[in-house]
Design a protein around this nucleic acid. Structure first.
Length: 900
RNA sequence: GGAGGCAUAGCUCAGCCGGUAGAGCGUCCGCCUCACACGCGGAAGGUCACAGAUUCGAGUUCUGUUGUCUCCACCA
């Protein structure tokens, strides 16, 4: 028999096993109409990304589900891929170029895209390799990329269809503008941060009455773009000003006082300055009151000047301007200043002119870009939008009807809130890396042509002077199509028919709005079906202090380092343990060590079994002539199968893993293996064979249940044991079998184990070392059971011999009482009678408390009448046990007293 | 302002359908027992945040309070 290391070394095993699986082609899915499909599409990680704990958790959960379903006989597909992550990737490339002293504009679009693809080639594969280290059993042959040909085709198809249905439109709207990334971003991409700001109270002079009108603002630098001030129509303070005007300071421009519901009488002075081009609310006020929209900021965050004005004026003069086209102001002396510089200069000028009444400190939430965390500027800009109301409606209904379920259920509400509140989705981005918008503009007649195919000629005027929109689509636009674009949509492929709709989507609660909701409405619109039946939501992995892991804090834990040090199985096990759906979890070093120890325990249990096997040990089976302990462990294992199955079906992976841990460690290793040693070391060959067969049967099948959680070590061990089939990952999942329940043996073992524990406990209390063996005398009505298990006491309770008797006349014996037996250990030299008496009386007091508890319950007519029969019977049984124990204790006390 | 999570042993967390509270780590005691010291045996430690309600019975359901965290909206 070859040497097996005492300590399991995952790094020696994991890569080898992964290669073995890949060679066996076990991850690959081929449409099999005879099998029920089970499909998961991976949340595609960004190509710029490195595997972090969030990915590790997300993919561990997916791999557990997919491996379980694969073993359960489903035609399983786990479809992997990566996301081009337009803004994040472009930012990284631009940053890298900056270090070389090159800008995007230097390169031009085509050369830039070449660089981007090269980047993708270089880094896109990295995260995939990292997912493999984790053990992910994805079908790598079907790996996709959101910017690959198929996905791009789906994107164009969708864009055109939505445009034809007027669900996509282009227009001047208020958008969130990042002056750093130089692009618009969607509402979902804005993160609000509390900042210390100031509240400036300004004085605008009313032209007609000469009075000073006080209004307050947090953004004085936008005042050059003011085109009105608003008051509430019902505000008694300002009724005399209806129809009047104010003189805008610094510009000396006359702007109207308008009445609008937006002006809140209860806030501040009730007067609001209106800047339609640079504030979302003011934009709405502007539309309602037909106010001019005057843009004073450039898209790269400076104040507009003569050149900017000229361009805008030309556009307006050409007649090409569309609805809500903003005018542009030449800001004169302020032109070219950055927005923050402008604030200082404008404030200084207002101060000098006596226009500032007071300055008040104020905390407020400022919108920042989720990518670069710079302040977002609200800007009126011409962008493409998806009309959300008609699309959201069916998506809300489908979830309300339960066609897609969230686990845990509470996230349904989260989703519905998001869907109900969502505004039109700004989908165009001023970026190059992404799906270019399939729209062409005719320079001669202004026609907009949206087309799947490239356009060279204007369909309206025949001009060749057409050019494609420079912008690309929001990266989430393609992610939204992921569950079906990856299966070949818009073609009716056999994969799409078989694997779609997918089954489980596993993701974090942080992207329900970004991604989950968009997949649901997209799928309903284009495929007429929900994209998945269940969304399994998990929480964030936090650091030991409960903080979010982040780059800036530097508190992230690298899963790859953990894998290297402890093994992927230990990492996966840690992430699955104690994890309940939707809840955040902390990553503690102790936990990973505990998981590593568990793997090692398993390794050594197997080492023990292998050491005892014959060379020609038969494959796992249940042998004849089972001993009581065999029936007990088989019965317990059968229960484990049921529990694990139930837990997995309810997505309670943390509970499943806990059941496995307890069974393997506490039940199988600490009891069954120890007891099996009796027969293994004995002379009876039949008994030896039986014990070996049961060890192999239970171990091998338990490994199957554990395999989804710890794929590597279970495969390594399973292959080392006698086995049928080539790999555990394609072996048949265990099924609960009513015929393998042995309740009588379970009860009997409970009595015996209880007695063994009681003896150990008492010996410990008396500081008797395990090496000091002592005779054990058992007095019990269930002598037969104890008789058949006598050897267990020798092995596990330091018994030198076991005597069963109906009457025992103790002469200096320690008394140990359980509800099934009174046990005497003659150890006269160690006896202290008064202490012994004290102990027994203490036990008696405790037993009497228990007795009262159950009696009170059972004497309660309400309980007996209303509680389920089963519960009443259980309580009666408990009481019976307590009464027996009391009887045994009283007898023991009598004996002691006699001897004193 | 709206919505939601969490509050259980010293620490980190489980606890599904309501029926005298569990794990890991830590602590204490004893063991190198022929698979494993990444181990074995034993012990201590909890008014399950607080107050009500429902129920024969509540850590578990409902209402409120407090603390804490998160998401969404808004703040001119």
């Amino acid at each position: 028999m070859k040497d097996i290391a005492k300590i399991y070394n995952p790094s020696e095993v994991e890569d080898r096993i992964y290669d073995f699986w890949v060679k066996g082609n076990y991850f690959h899915a081929e449409v099999d109409e005879n099998k029920k499909p089970y499909t998961i599409v991976i949340p595609p990680p960004n190509i710029t990304g490195q595997l972090h704990m969030g990915h590790a958790l997300d993919n561990t959960l997916q791999d557990i589900l997919i491996r379980w379903k694969r073993m359960s006989g489903f035609d399983t597909l786990w479809l992997p891929g990566t996301d081009h992550a337009s803004i994040a990737t472009e930012a990284k490339i631009v940053e890298a170029m900056r270090k070389e002293g090159i800008t995007k504009e230097d390169l031009g679009r085509d050369a830039f895209l070449e660089r981007a693809w090269a980047w993708k080639e270089q880094y896109g594969g990295r995260i995939v390799e990292q997912l493999k280290k984790l053990g992910s059993s994805c079908d790598w042959e079907r790996e996709r990329f959101t910017l690959d040909e198929g996905c791009s085709r789906a994107v164009n198809e969708v864009f055109c269809r939505l445009y034809e249905k007027d669900l996509i439109y282009r227009g001047n709207r208020m958008v969130n503008w990042c002056t750093c990334c130089n692009t618009s971003i969607s509402d979902a991409e804005v993160e609000y941060e509390e900042q210390d700001g100031k509240f400036w109270h300004l004085l605008y002079t009313v032209k007609e009455t000469g009075e000073k009108l006080e209004l307050a603002t947090t953004r004085p630098e936008t005042m050059l773009g003011d085109t009105a001030v608003a008051i509430n129509a019902d505000d008694e303070r300002y009724k005399h000003l209806h129809g009047c005007h104010v003189i805008l300071p610094l510009l000396n421009k006359e702007i109207p006082i308008v009445c609008d519901e937006h002006a809140d009488m209860t806030k501040g002075t009730g007067v609001v300055k209106i800047t339609p081009a640079h504030d979302p609310n003011d934009f709405e006020v502007g539309l309602r009151n037909n106010l001019p929209i005057v843009r004073t900021f450039t898209y790269d965050g400076r104040l507009t000047g003569a050149e900017d004005k000229k361009i805008a004026d030309e556009l307006i003069a050409s007649g090409r301007a569309t609805e809500n086209e903003p005018e542009v102001l030449d800001c004169g002396k302020y032109a070219g200043l950055t927005i923050s510089e402008a604030r200082k200069v404008i404030l200084a000028d207002l101060e000098a002119g006596g226009y500032i009444k007071e300055v008040e400190p104020r905390k407020h939430e400022v919108g920042t870009c989720y990518r670069c965390h710079r302040t977002i500027e609200p800007m009126v800009s011409k962008q493409w939008f998806v009309r959300m109301v008609p699309l959201a409606k069916p998506a809300i209904e489908a979830v309300e009807k339960g066609e897609t379920k969230f686990v845990p259920e509470r996230f349904t509400k989260n989703y519905l809130n998001w869907m109900n509140g969502t505004r039109d989705w700004c989908i165009s981005r001023q970026l190059w890396w992404g799906h270019r918008i399939p729209a062409w503009y005719c320079a001669d007649c202004g026609e907009v042509i949206v087309s799947k195919a490239d356009v060279c000629t204007c369909s309206k005027c025949g001009s060749k002077n057409v050019s494609q929109d420079e912008d690309t689509l929001d990266t989430w636009f393609s992610s939204a199509l992921w569950p079906f674009s990856t299966l070949g949509w818009p073609d009716e492929t056999k994969e799409l028919k078989h694997y779609y709709p997918t089954n489980t989507l596993v993701t974090g609660y942080d992207i329900i709005g970004f991604w989950v909701s968009r997949m649901i409405f997209s799928a309903l619109e284009y495929t007429g079906q929900v994209p998945f039946d269940t969304v399994l939501i998990h929480g964030l992995v936090r650091d030991a202090q409960g903080r979010k892991m982040s780059k800036s804090l530097g508190n992230g834990i690298d899963p790859l380092e953990i894998i290297e040090k402890y093994g992927a199985d230990a990492l996966r096990f840690s992430l699955a343990t104690g994890n309940s759906p939707g809840n955040d979890m902390r990553f503690l070093p102790e936990k990973i060590e505990a998981s590593r120890n568990f793997a090692n325990k398993l390794w050594n249990a197997n080492r023990f079994i292998l050491m005892n096997l014959d060379e020609n040990e038969p494959a796992p089976h249940i042998p004849e002539n089972l001993a009581i302990e065999d029936k007990w462990i088989i019965s317990r294992f059968n229960k484990l199968v049921k529990n694990v199955q139930n837990s997995l079906e309810n997505f309670e992976l943390g509970i499943a893993v806990q059941n496995l841990y307890d069974f393997i460690w506490d039940v199988f290793c600490d009891w069954y293996i120890e007891i099996a040693k009796i027969r293994l070391n004995g002379e009876d060959e039949h008994a030896r064979n039986t014990a070996r067969a049961v060890l192999v049967y239970v171990m091998s099948n338990t490994l199957k249940l554990l395999h989804p959680f710890m794929p590597f070590i279970t495969e390594e061990i399973w292959l080392a044991l006698p086995h049928d089939g080539e790999s555990i990952m394609i072996s048949k999942w265990c099924e609960y079998d009513e015929r393998l329940n042995f309740p009588a043996e379970e009860d009997a073992m409970d009595l015996v184990m209880d007695a063994i524990r009681a003896i150990r406990n008492r010996r410990n209390e008396m500081n008797v070392p395990p090496s000091k063996k002592a005779k054990v005398v058992i007095v019990s009505e269930k002598a037969e059971i104890f008789g058949s298990c006598a050897a267990f006491f020798e092995r596990l309770a330091s018994a030198s011999e076991v005597e069963l008797t109906e009457n025992y006349n103790p002469d200096g014996a320690v008394t140990v009482v359980t509800d099934a037996a009174t046990i005497y250990i003659p150890m006269k030299e160690l006896m202290d009678f008064s202490k012994e008496l004290e102990r027994l009386e203490k036990d008696l007091a405790k037993a009497n408390v228990d007795k009262e508890f159950f009696e009170k319950k059972l004497n309660n007519p309400g309980f007996v009448a209303k509680a389920p029969e089963k519960v009443v019977a259980e309580q009666r049984e408990q009481l019976g046990k307590v009464l027996e124990k009391i009887e045994n204790l009283l007898a023991g006390i009598e004996d002691i007293k006699k001897q004193m």
